[in-house]
Design a protein around this nucleic acid. Structure first.
Lengths: 152, 152
DNA sequence: ATAAATCTGGATATGTGATGTCCAGGATTC
DNA sequence: GAATCCTGGACATCACATATCCAGATTTAT
């Protein structure tokens, strides 16, 4: 059992969420987002659909359609995005099944790993898209406007 | 790119470390450890060798040989074991390479992820084999002695 | 109405890395 | 010298992230 903490798809999804936050209420087609990041459109689509199912993003079909951020940036945590894309995988589960009788208590290793996993999630849940936006503006105040111009 | 992950090998390595702590100064052959957990011996060997290279475990060849824990349990953190088995992988690296000039500052997403990863590692570094031992004894005071008897 | 743009969701291919196996060599004990 | 056990590399296998494709549905624009 490999406990995967994060896939590349999360990184893309986060960048796109930030892009959509900057794009405001102008829908951005998946193809444009993909081109902006130099990503394969067909795969990015999957991440966007996952974000849609999680209620983070909304889509409108047809010409002038595309994706919109469906919640205020300060209400979308990084954990929300990770959960949407990588799934809300069960945390570390110790696979040990010793033949020493019924396990009444949880394996100590399992508990320790779950604690570390929780610390990781807590950190991700403590930061939102608005925080990322603030970080970017601090380093490069023009980035949001530039991105918006490129995407809309 | 899968960023941070944990392999099944870590779980096995941790169990074996605890087993060796209980076995005291009696060497335990890899084959016996594997049988005790119902694991493929040839693969467990790899984890044990990794632990050896990290200085967590020591081995003696020949009859009556096997593996020994090479450090006091309270000096071996879970992070040590994870690093030994899964490698000290570089933390999350944002792969984004936009064509908008040289990146002087680190990507905001990268920073946020690194922070979460650090929280995870810190939690693992805060717990040692001795802590696990204490947890197990609290739940089942006989477990260490039982395991020791089975392995030596 | 018709055409164009865009999303939806499933089927499927590809590639990487974890998992698992095997073997020839060397060290140690008896 | 024989048996036990570790070492390290080469190799096979398998799961899953990554990537692609396509037939349908939905909306906008003319």
């Amino acid at each position: 059992m490999v406990v995967v903490k994060m896939t590349e798809g999360v990184e893309w999804a986060l960048h796109c969420c930030l892009d959509l936050a900057w794009a405001g209420d102008t829908p951005v087609p998946a193809a444009r987002l993909a081109a902006h990041h130099g990503l394969p459109p067909a795969y990015l689509t999957k991440q966007l659909q996952a974000l849609g199912r999680a209620g983070i993003v909304r889509s409108t079909p047809g010409p002038r359609g595309g994706y919109l951020l469906d919640r205020p940036p300060h209400t979308v945590t990084l954990m929300d995005v990770v959960a949407a894309v990588d799934g809300t995988d069960p945390a570390f589960r110790c696979t040990e099944i010793r033949a020493d009788g019924p396990h009444t208590t949880r394996c100590a290793i399992d508990t320790a790993m779950a604690r570390a996993d929780l610390a990781w999630r807590r950190e991700l849940a403590a930061r939102t898209l608005a925080d990322l936006d603030a970080d970017v503006r601090r380093a490069d105040p023009d980035a949001p406007a530039t991105t918006r111009a490129r995407l809309t």
